[in-house]
Computed example of a mutant assay.
Amino acid sequence: MNDEPLRKAVRRGLADEVADRVRDAIFGGRFPPGAPLREVELAESLGVSRGAVREGLAQLQREGLVRTGWHRPTTVVEATAVDVEEVYRVRAALDRLAAVTAMRLATQGQLDELDRLVDEMAAELDAGAGVPRLLALDMAFHDRIYEAAGNGRLTGAWQAVRSQVFLFQLQRVSLAHGQYRALVVDEHRELARLLRAGGTVEELDRLAAEHVDTARRSLLTLLTGPGNAEPDDLMAAE
């Protein structure tokens, strides 16, 4: 066995904070899909070095939020049809497993929290809340379902795609704001109702899949047009 000591761990707190700040700005709509992220401007705005910004952007690139390349500007990811198919099909599989597991394991307090989040969505909608606020509540609702499922590896898989899901939902809603606002409360309230009522696994599995597939189809239609939204070789989530 090699007894050579490990290198000292390097504290990367500043880069993590940069990633958090830029991520929040993306999710808040300040940097929309396709927007450039310039190191010099971000460093000046955040009061940090360009090196910290570079590390923070590298973290966001690993999350799938930004794209960069040799001699190419760093930009916020714009969803393509391939991106949407991959991310939403992975999400559908994860959400279905999370929902049916949470149905068995959720506590009364966790179910109450889901209802509270749906009520807050409805109140914010009535008050004319902007897209970022509604999406934040939407994602918090699904975070609570994963927590209720109590499976650390499942939650880890969700966290691996969560940032891209948020970004793609942001792009979807920016293109079809009215459609999202018309569906967001009812879809989540029905999910919360089934989780509380203890419906059949099949019914909950179907609803969880449909919830994700509605978003997938909507964004594909907006990106490619109605004629290309459902290619023959792509099956709708079951």
Score class of each variant (00 low, 15 high):
234 L>S: 08
92 A>Y: 03
3 D>L: 15
195 L>Q: 04
201 V>G: 06
153 R>A: 13
185 V>C: 07
160 A>C: 05
76 V>M: 09
126 D>W: 05
76 V>P: 00
63 E>Q: 14
168 F>H: 08
181 R>S: 08
97 L>V: 10
119 D>L: 04
173 V>F: 06
197 A>K: 09
133 R>A: 13
135 L>S: 05
77 V>A: 06
137 L>G: 03
64 G>C: 12
101 T>Y: 00
95 D>I: 08
158 W>V: 03
165 V>L: 14
58 A>N: 09
199 G>C: 09
211 H>C: 07
100 V>S: 06
134 L>F: 06
198 G>V: 11
139 M>Q: 10
207 L>K: 05
36 P>Q: 11
188 H>Y: 10
14 L>V: 15
48 V>D: 07
143 D>A: 11
134 L>V: 13
204 L>Q: 00
15 A>P: 01
157 A>S: 13
225 G>D: 04
46 L>H: 07
164 Q>A: 11
31 F>T: 07
130 G>T: 07
35 A>F: 07
77 V>L: 11
86 E>C: 08
133 R>T: 14
116 R>F: 08
57 L>P: 02
139 M>S: 11
225 G>E: 02
148 A>D: 06
140 A>L: 14
189 R>Y: 04
124 E>M: 08
22 V>S: 01
212 V>W: 00
214 T>N: 03
93 A>S: 13
134 L>D: 04
13 G>L: 14
45 S>F: 05
232 D>I: 12
167 L>F: 14
175 L>M: 15
199 G>T: 13
64 G>F: 09
187 E>M: 12
220 L>D: 01
110 Q>F: 04
12 R>I: 15
70 W>V: 15
93 A>K: 11
74 T>Q: 08
169 Q>I: 01
44 E>L: 07
71 H>E: 15
218 S>M: 02
221 T>W: 00
230 E>D: 10
130 G>I: 05
75 T>S: 10
199 G>F: 01
79 A>L: 01
208 A>T: 07
52 A>T: 03
33 P>S: 06
93 A>W: 09
99 A>H: 02
86 E>D: 12
171 Q>M: 12
2 N>I: 15
17 E>W: 07
113 E>H: 08
200 T>N: 02
113 E>F: 05
8 K>M: 12
